[in-house]
Every structure is written in structure tokens, then in C-alpha cells.
Design a protein around this nucleic acid. Structure first.
Length: 420
RNA sequence: GGAGGGUUCGCAUAGUGGUCGAGUGCGCUUGCUUGGAAAGCAAGUAUACCGCAAGGUAUCGAGGGUUCGAAUCCCUCACCCUCCGCCA
């Protein structure tokens, strides 16, 4: 959410964001609703003032209230009642659009329609060359009894899967490795709820913008990322400056409907409805010089982990059309996946300025005593099973086994390879 | 799932129809006092919106309702606590 006054003062910039991000949002309707709302509010406030005045003037102890004043009170009440439906209607209309107004984007964000216009910033690592017929992760996983998608489909349905045996261990190893790394970097570790109410989903922008990606469960929802719970964590609170920046990392299962992607990535573990992720979330001062620096930190931590794992990757600056309504600036990290003969998205790093904080009503007391909305940002630390695709495919050996990256070996009981 | 009790300004509490956006204690801030500190004394100490300001309006878990007037009465919901049942 943006400040309505900011929207009014920066109408051009906001319009540009709506257009270049490809968001459906009627700014005109918002501005006219705002005008109506303000003028109605003024009338209501004036009537309230009169009502309070009238009531206060007949306070005297036990004395019989003046019938004329009671009549006056009734009259005011009736007038208020007349305005009430209109005010409710216009406020609902106003709020509805407000929740759909995208954030503006940074000057260095590439303008583009879709992911084809993202900009590669850098690459790292060596793309492996195999002197034997390389297999994809599904073949490797099935042959070595590590992945069972057939029975996964039996038990779950489309996109269902089981991770088995050493791959189940590798999953925990890489999760634990990433989690420990975050703790060492000074991030507070969380195991966050995945079954959640609307508060975090609205705060992060899933609601109402991409509500169709979220599974409902009775009166609750299955969250698509720990970011949802971590943004809800401090909702409606005022944080003391000395606490900032808040550095959180959260592990949780993640659920995504993947609505509208039925034809995409139908084989293997790339696009699934249920996965696990360690996520990093930072809440900091409303100051781009602070938040941009922390934003780079989040990116570098993720890069460091991929480097530790010895996986080749590239960093992309995400263009307006691919970045999502709330984002001010966004990077993706894509990791090399031999079977795709290209990089596949494994990390997504977003800076939201105060767009989420307003929705979550998270505020902080600045050092000058004023109350402000902080900047928030988040990035993947590690997400499995997608990262397992890269590990299986990049680390496959001529003898059909899969090597375990050095840093994960201690977490696999010293095991150096899988499928031996 | 059943029965009962709660939710007030950071914390603890007072407040059962008008003088209550709301008292007291603790905490915190500032000033006085002091060699310094403690104690003591004094003042201040929620948030949002409108307004240049003075000031106004709203908010006592949330949402409805009754009333000229609601923290206070009624209804619905959420959450917390106690007891019983069930259970990973």
C-alpha cells in the first residue's frame, strides 16, 4: 500500500508503475473515491462535533435534559444515519483500490513486459561438462530410488512426489546448512506457521492480488512462504528504533496452487505444489541508503550459499513486467540446471520499501520520536526440492552416483556420495 | 467438543449511561535538587486523519445495535485464562 498523499503527489510515477508492471488498477477511480471520501468525512466530522457539543451541554447532574436538546440530538443522529451508507460504500471502494495500487519501482529497474526482458547482471561458477550421457534429475532420482513421482501422483495428484532415502537426507542437510548459515550471520531463526489467516497474506500482497495462488483450508489458508508469517509477526506493532534492523530467517513448508501454469514444467520437481524453504526477511529504517545496503546483503548471502554448494548461477535484475505489484526492486538468482540447458530460478530477492509495512501496519519510532513505516525486504535462503534438481544434476558422476558437496557431507553423516 | 471467567493508554489496575481519550501505581522523558547518584519534587508520556495554526474527529479486542449521549447496556465474532473430554 502507498500513502494516498504520495499517490496524489506522484500520480505520474504511480501510473507508470501500473502500466509497466501490467497491473489492473483504476487510479482515476481511486482519486475520485478519495475526494468523495474526504468530503463525506468532513461532513460526518462536523456532525459528530455538533453531537458531542449537544450531549456535553446537557450533562448537568441529574437535571432533566432539555427536550429541545434531545430533539436536536435526534436530528443530528438522523443526518448522520443518512450519510452513513454513502460513507461505507465509498470507503470500501477506496480501500479496495488502495490494496491494488502497486509500489513504484527503482530508477535502475529495467522496464519490460516479461521475463525475457530481465537483465543478467553477473554469472558465477563453472557450468559442468559431462563426458558421459548426463541424465535429468527425475531419471537419476527414479533409477536410484530417490524420487517417486508415480506414487506421489497416486497419493497427492498432479505434481505430487516423494523424496526418498539419501535424497530425503540431502534435503535436510541442505536445509540445515542454510539455516545454520543464517544464524551465523546474525539472523533470528524461526519455524513459522504455514496455516495462517489473512493478516500476513494481505500484508505481503498475496491478498487480494494473487489470491488464486493460495490454498484455502476452511477459515484459514496455506501460506506460500515464511515471509507471510514473518511479516504478520510484527503486524500492528510499533517497533523501537534500537531493535532495527530486524533480521529474521524462517523455515516453513510452502504451498502454491500454481494456477495458470498447467502446461509448464510438468515433469520432475521443478514446479510443485508443496515444498520447503528457508526465507530471510529484514525490517529496517525507512531510508533507502539503509535498505538498499541490506538488500544487497540478502542477495550476497544467497550467492554465498550457492558458492558453498559449488553451483553455477547467475543474478538477474528483474524487469517491471516480471516483478510483482509491491516490489521496488528485485533480483532473481538462477542456478544452473543441466537438464534445462539453462539456469532455473532458485532465489528471489525483493525490496518493498514501505509498501508491505503499511499493509501490515508495522511501524517504528524513529530516533527523532516520529512514528514511521519501515522498509521490508526478503530473499530465499534455500528452497527444496528445487535446489535438489541442481545438486542431483550438477553432481552426477560417470558411474551413475551423485557426489555430495563438501559442506553438506558432515550433515550426511560424512557420506560423500549418493547411490553408491 | 462441554462449562465458566476475561480482553481498558508500555506493564499492573480503576472505571456499570453524561463532567471519560479515560484516574492511580510502575516504567520512561525532561527540569529542579546533588560533588555524583539514589530518594524527593514538578511537568510530560497512545495512534490515525483533517487543519498554516488554534483546534477538530475517530479509536477502551473487532464488527453491528440500543440511546439525545456508550469503556459502561444488547447481539455476533476473535483471542486469552480455568475446569472436563479427546488427541499428535
Amino acid at each position: 500500500m502507498l500513502d494516498i498523499n504520495f499517490i496524489i503527489e506522484n500520480k505520474k510515477k504511480v501510473e507508470e508503475a501500473i502500466r509497466n508492471k501490467g497491473i489492473k488498477c483504476d487510479l482515476k477511480a481511486l482519486l475520485s473515491a478519495d475526494k468523495e471520501r474526504r468530503s463525506l468525512l468532513q461532513k460526518v466530522e462536523e456532525l459528530n462535533r455538533k453531537r458531542n457539543e449537544n450531549a456535553a451541554s446537557m450533562k448537568p447532574k441529574g437535571a432533566k435534559p432539555d427536550p429541545r436538546q434531545i430533539e436536536e440530538g435526534k436530528r443530528i443522529k438522523e443526518e448522520l444515519a443518512k450519510l452513513d451508507p454513502a460513507l461505507r460504500e465509498v470507503e470500501a471502494r477506496f480501500n479496495d483500490v488502495m490494496l491494488r495500487v502497486p509500489n513504484v519501482y527503482s530508477d535502475d529497474t529495467p522496464v519490460g513486459k516479461d521475463d525475457s526482458e530481465n537483465k543478467e547482471l553477473r554469472t558465477w561458477g563453472k557450468i559442468p561438462k559431462f563426458d558421459f550421457p548426463a541424465k535429468d534429475h527425475l531419471q537419476l532420482g527414479t533409477e536410484l530410488d530417490l524420487i517417486d513421482t508415480e506414487r506421489g501422483t497416486k497419493v497427492v495428484g498432479f505434481r505430487g512426489y516423494f523424496l526418498k532415502n539419501d535424497l530425503a537426507r540431502l534435503h535436510w542437510a541442505v536445509m540445515t546448512y542454510a539455516f545454520n548459515k543464517m544464524i551465523a550471520k546474525g539472523y533470528s531463526p524461526f519455524i513459522t506457521p504455514s496455516l495462517v489467516n489473512e493478516i500476513g497474506l494481505t500484508a505481503t500482497g498475496w491478498f487480494p492480488l494473487v489470491k488464486d495462488q493460495v490454498y484455502p483450508v476452511e477459515d484459514k489458508f496455506l501460506s506460500g512462504t515464511a515471509e507471510v508469517a514473518l511479516m504478520g509477526y510484527r503486524a500492528n506493532e510499533i517497533i523501537e528504533t534500537k531493535e532495527l534492523p530486524l533480521k529474521y530467517c524462517g523455515f516453513s513448508p510452502c504451498f502454491r496452487r500454481e494456477a495458470g501454469s498447467y502446461g509448464k514444467d510438468t515433469k520432475g520437481l521443478y514446479r510443485v505444489h508443496e515444498f520447503w524453504k528457508v526465507e530471510q526477511v529484514v525490517i529496517c529504517e525507512n531510508d533507502l541508503s539503509v535498505s538498499l545496503a541490506l538488500f544487497e546483503e540478502l542477495l550476497h548471502i544467497a550467492e554465498e550459499i550457492l558458492q558453498d554448494l559449488g553451483l553455477a548461477y547467475r543474478v538477474l535484475a528483474i524487469c517491471t513486467g516480471d516483478m510483482g505489484a509491491g516490489k521496488y526492486k528485485m533480483y532473481d538468482i538462477e542456478t544452473w540446471m543441466p537438464s534445462r540447458k539453462s539456469y532455473g530460478e532458485t532465489h528471489s530477492c525483493s525490496l518493498l520499501t514501505d509498501w508491505q509495512a503499511r499493509r501490515a501496519n508495522i511501524r517504528y519510532r524513529a530516533s527523532d520520536g516520529s512514528v514511521r513505516y519501515p522498509h521490508t525486504m526478503n530473499n530465499t535462503v534455500i528452497a527444496s526440492p528445487r535446489i535438489l534438481i541442481a545438486l542431483l544434476e550438477n553432481y552426477q558422476q560417470a558411474d551413475g552416483t551423485i557426489a555430495v558437496p563438501k559442506v553438506l557431507q558432515p550433515l550426511m553423516g560424512g557420506q560423500k556420495s549418493i547411490g553408491a
